[in-house]
Design a protein around this nucleic acid. Structure first.
Lengths: 253, 253
DNA sequence: GAGTCCGTTGCAGATCCTGCAACGCTCATT
DNA sequence: AATGAGCGTTGCAGGATCTGCAACGGACTC
């Protein structure tokens, strides 16, 4: 809607790929160098981009700090955290909390496994949306008219042989997940990692977040992990209750 | 430099304080509602702001994802991580990695304590710059003409009775830290928490990052923590060596 | 020491942004 | 049920702001 701002903001994902110099930025934006320079300067003044010693630009520290604040403002995160910690103390595995927003699912909290073998993931990282158990729960709850177009728009990378292969399979899976009220990912993202997940609901019953327990095969088998399902669901329900109970008049997730 | 972009970017820190509606944004920017609307829409298209169900705006998911990518691009982080993990395995305490950038110091990595009592901190969070051990190391290495103005510009909140009280005291502390090549924070941020920190240097000897070990009094006394200093310094030196050794032609921290 | 490459600056033209005013919607009030 | 207030939204005309050009300057190379 606003050309100048639009161009300026387009620089950010571009720099997220790695540092770039003025010429590269100008080229990729399709504007004159002097224009790119002015945009970069403005971004710089706000700390969103940083100029390294070799004069190239990269994303800046304030961007990271802003994102941090953004996450701390999410109320489910705050409410859920102690529950996640308790669950981790009970089962020892990695616990994740994720939300959906505008075609993306991201982890917003995590409690590390207490086993030496840890799964790689990071708070803030977009989730493998077509296979992750938490993603299934969040998408399964979308209204039909959003869910289908989204499913058809997605890519279906075959991380492993068990990854969701395409949109129809995904939609079928979502249907199943919606009915049973929980989800799994059995080696669909990384061959040796399994997850069980449960939804967290707001007062109106809509799914506002999802949580999961993940563990590698070498620690527990998929079957053993599934025995944790009741515990996971109970934890999720506890969070749901607290979240819808004292709803501090803030918006949805 | 660019008015429109400048205004648009000013919205981000504003929303970081919490959700706001159109009128509030327009007021705080000092522009007409229609102008604010167009800016917000542009930010929205890029996913940097999100519109909640109550129509108010807050920071969006893509901002978080961008920040995540920004951190993953930092090469020291990648090099340092395994060293931090090893150190954590050896001593059991919380280990932090921090960098300085444009008047800010922030944590870019963290390995959690294995003791039940954990210190609160978060990756991406700006550090208490006047008291944290890592901040002292990073600022101590700045050239005089940057260090002094910065020190005089800072606020000196008295988190505890041992917090650095003012600029002269801070500059003296930095001088000491620079000479001894390591730093501590003994209850200067939170009464019962102590840290020891060591610098990580690039090939040219400049400090590019700093790492620290933190532990609460209830787990180890300050004196006991200080006995870890040699180990911390050795770890930091190891990272320094690796960082300056195979310098993959990337920029500074 | 000449040449090339890149970032930087000032400027004039025109695009794009701004603020206004009016509209429509929702919600609260009478 | 009707009225009014509050808020977000739209179209428009005037003009401020942004754009691209061309020329400059510094660093590095051959």
């Amino acid at each position: 809607m606003s050309q100048t701002v639009d161009r300026a903001l387009s620089i950010l994902p571009l720099l997220a790929e790695g540092p770039a110099d003025l010429g590269q930025v100008a080229d990729r934006l399709g504007v004159h160098k002097s224009t790119a320079l002015r945009l970069l300067r403005t971004l710089h003044e706000h700390g969103l981009v940083y100029r390294q010693s070799d004069q190239r630009y990269r994303l800046g520290a304030r961007l990271i700090a802003l994102a941090q604040e953004a996450m701390e403002n999410l109320d489910i995160r705050e409410i859920a955290h102690p529950h996640l910690v308790r669950l981790n103390e009970q089962c020892g595995h990695t616990v994740h909390l994720a939300v959906y927003e505008e075609d993306e699912v991201l982890y917003i909290d995590k409690v590390e496994s207490r086993y030496p073998v840890r799964m790689y993931s990071r708070i803030g990282k977009p989730v493998a949306i077509t296979v992750a158990a938490v993603a299934k729960l969040l998408l399964a709850d979308l209204p039909e008219h959003e869910r289908r177009p989204l499913a058809e728009k997605l890519d279906y990378p075959m991380y492993t042989a068990r990854s969701t292969p395409n949109a129809p399979a995904f939609l079928r899976e979502l249907e199943k997940v919606r009915e049973q009220g929980w989800a799994t990912d059995l080696g669909g993202h990384e061959e040796s990692i399994n997850c069980v997940a449960a939804p967290i609901r707001g007062a109106d019953g809509r799914v506002v977040a999802a949580m999961s327990v993940s563990a590698p095969n070498v620690v527990v088998t998929a079957d053993e992990l599934l025995t944790l399902l009741p515990l996971v669901r109970r934890t999720a329900d506890g969070i749901s209750g607290e979240y819808s109970g004292r709803n501090t008049a803030k918006g949805t997730a």
